[in-house]
Simulated scan of single mutants.
Amino acid sequence: MTDLNPPPEKAKAAAEIKKILSGGKAHFPNPPDPTNPDPATLREQWRYAIRQYSRMYSHAWGTAILAGASFFALGWFIKGGNPLPSFGTHHDPPPPPSPADSTDEPRRA
């Protein structure tokens, strides 16, 4: 069963939406252009957007690299050595004992 009389809150919200969609007193901060701009203007806007995006992208990569280097240096300072064990000197396993060391006799000096 449908409700023929919606609550006043829903009715008010629906009336506001209808007013906005019908071109009533809706104030948008950036209203749409009444017509499409000419191709030269669109090309200029597109190039400007690409420049802005490229600038933000390079700033983001620069910040990420600088932060990584800073944290690596901070880890090196705190630890007193290389904080990344995978980049340190590789520890080879100890060599097997030689046959001369495997005798049970004590060594004589």
Rank of each mutant, 00 (worst) to 15 (best):
T103Y: 04
P29Q: 03
I17Y: 10
A100R: 11
P94L: 03
S98K: 14
I65V: 13
K12N: 12
L66E: 09
G24V: 12
A64R: 04
P96V: 06
R43A: 14
E16F: 08
A67K: 09
F72Y: 15
Y57L: 03
P6Y: 09
L84N: 14
R107E: 13
K12G: 01
A60Y: 02
Y48L: 14
T35I: 11
P94M: 03
A14S: 12
T89K: 12
W61C: 04
K12D: 11
S102H: 00
P31T: 08
Y57I: 00
F87K: 06
I20A: 15
K18S: 15
A100L: 01
E9A: 08
R108N: 10
Q45K: 09
A26Q: 07
E9V: 12
W61F: 00
S70T: 10
P96Q: 03
H91A: 01
W46N: 13
G88Y: 01
P37F: 04
G80L: 02
N5Q: 10
G62P: 01
R47S: 13
P7D: 08
F77K: 14
S102E: 11
A73L: 14
P6Q: 12
W76K: 15
N30V: 13
N36W: 05
P93V: 05
Y53R: 15
G88I: 00
I17A: 09
P34V: 10
F28E: 09
P7Q: 03
F77Y: 11
A73E: 01
P32G: 03
A26Y: 10
F87Q: 08
K12P: 00
R47L: 15
A13G: 04
P7W: 07
T103S: 15
S22F: 05
W76N: 15
D33W: 06
P95Y: 02
F71R: 07
